[in-house]
Amino acid sequence: MFSPEGPGLRELAVQALSSVEHGYDLLAPKFDHTPFRTSGAVLDATTRALTGLGPFARGLDLCCGTGAGMDVLRAVCARSVTGVDLSAGMLAEGRRREAAREAGAPGPRADWVRADARALPFGPVFDLAVSFGAFGHFLPRELPALFAQVHSVLRPGGRFAFPLGAPPPFSSPWYWALLGFDMAMRVRNALWRPPFVMYYRTFRLGDVLRALHGAGFATELRALPEFGRRPDGSPRGRLVLATRAAL
């Protein structure tokens, strides 16, 4: 699962026994060499789905990590892109990646801001917000307040978009792997402090849509055709597209 440049077992164990913030500070230099980084296939599919929905001037990557989603924003936003994350280490790695980009390369200005996604330090200035792979760090009861924060930083008519994969079927090894991970995390958090909140099976589509509606969003689902369909015909991957009402 990990490349030779990725973290070792001891490093992962230290991270797992840390807080979410400190754990990601420790993991940041090697994060892009782990399977936890959002895959290029997901990023590319999201970019294609968002292309043509704009124009977008300013974009926000919520819980940006080292900045994989910032590349999606650069492709569809004309003026500026902003990444926000709680981990100073992940932001530092994102800035390092930004500096390594070719000098003078075209694209919008990029900003990196350390903040809690549950208390965003912005007014309603963004046309588009995205997020990739971060929602497992929030308990289901936190979603209404989290989505309300996103709603508050979007301009009227602004969009909040994120990919969401279909849950694996009961017969799939992935079902049992994710179930086992979540159970292990619950045991860890019952026995050890500080907690490390990361669950793969708590971000369910029905709950997500209800929380988005409660925050004031209108929602639609768009299939991501790159990932095909399940035997029942439903898409294996969707883009959740939530829109703040225009004035």
Results as ranks from 00 to 15, higher is better:
residue 19 S to E: 09
residue 182 D to A: 13
residue 164 L to W: 11
residue 107 G to A: 01
residue 134 A to V: 11
residue 171 S to K: 03
residue 138 F to L: 14
residue 6 G to T: 00
residue 77 C to R: 02
residue 239 L to M: 13
residue 109 R to L: 12
residue 131 S to C: 14
residue 230 R to F: 08
residue 79 R to E: 15
residue 9 L to C: 00
residue 125 V to L: 05
residue 113 V to D: 01
residue 37 R to C: 03
residue 39 S to I: 03
residue 54 G to K: 05
residue 99 A to P: 00
residue 93 E to I: 05
residue 105 A to R: 09
residue 174 W to E: 15
residue 168 P to K: 10
residue 138 F to T: 08
residue 239 L to Q: 00
residue 178 L to P: 01
residue 196 F to A: 12
residue 15 Q to G: 00
residue 237 G to H: 01
residue 5 E to R: 15
residue 174 W to Q: 15
residue 161 A to C: 14
residue 209 L to A: 03
residue 16 A to P: 07
residue 155 R to K: 15
residue 59 G to L: 06
residue 205 L to Q: 13
residue 182 D to C: 12
residue 48 R to Y: 00
residue 3 S to L: 14
residue 168 P to W: 09
residue 206 G to M: 01
residue 210 R to Y: 00
residue 71 D to G: 13
residue 236 R to M: 07
residue 31 F to I: 07
residue 164 L to H: 11
residue 116 D to E: 03
residue 97 R to S: 09
residue 141 R to F: 15
residue 187 V to W: 13
residue 43 L to E: 09
residue 197 V to Q: 13
residue 132 F to C: 03
residue 84 V to E: 02
residue 19 S to D: 10
residue 203 F to W: 14
residue 178 L to Y: 15
residue 174 W to N: 04
residue 178 L to V: 09
residue 91 L to A: 00
residue 32 D to G: 12
residue 76 V to G: 06
residue 1 M to G: 15
residue 100 A to N: 10
residue 3 S to C: 02
residue 151 H to S: 03
residue 73 L to R: 08
residue 209 L to P: 08
residue 163 P to C: 13
residue 172 S to N: 10
residue 204 R to A: 14
residue 152 S to H: 14
residue 55 P to D: 04
residue 186 R to Y: 13
residue 235 P to L: 06
residue 20 V to F: 02
residue 65 G to T: 04
residue 49 A to S: 14
residue 50 L to H: 02
residue 124 P to K: 00
residue 128 L to V: 03
residue 22 H to W: 01
residue 25 D to Q: 01
residue 168 P to I: 10
residue 238 R to E: 03
residue 68 A to G: 12
residue 246 A to M: 00
residue 202 T to Q: 13
residue 134 A to M: 11
residue 216 G to W: 11
residue 241 L to F: 00
residue 177 A to Q: 14
residue 70 M to T: 13
residue 6 G to R: 10
residue 16 A to I: 01
residue 144 P to N: 12
residue 238 R to F: 00
residue 163 P to R: 09
residue 81 V to E: 03
residue 34 T to I: 06
residue 217 F to I: 02
residue 46 T to D: 06
residue 236 R to N: 14
residue 144 P to C: 14
residue 63 C to E: 04
residue 19 S to P: 08
residue 97 R to P: 05
residue 109 R to M: 04
residue 168 P to R: 11
residue 91 L to F: 06
residue 111 D to W: 11
residue 234 S to Y: 03
residue 133 G to Y: 00
residue 69 G to S: 08
residue 112 W to K: 01
residue 83 G to Q: 07
residue 83 G to T: 06
residue 89 G to P: 04
residue 120 L to D: 02
residue 204 R to E: 14
residue 190 A to I: 08
residue 140 P to W: 07
residue 212 L to H: 10
residue 191 L to K: 06
residue 115 A to I: 07
residue 126 F to K: 03
residue 129 A to I: 10
residue 40 G to M: 03
residue 71 D to H: 12
residue 80 S to I: 02
residue 123 G to S: 05
residue 195 P to F: 00
residue 96 R to T: 14
residue 75 A to C: 08
residue 93 E to S: 01
residue 86 L to T: 10
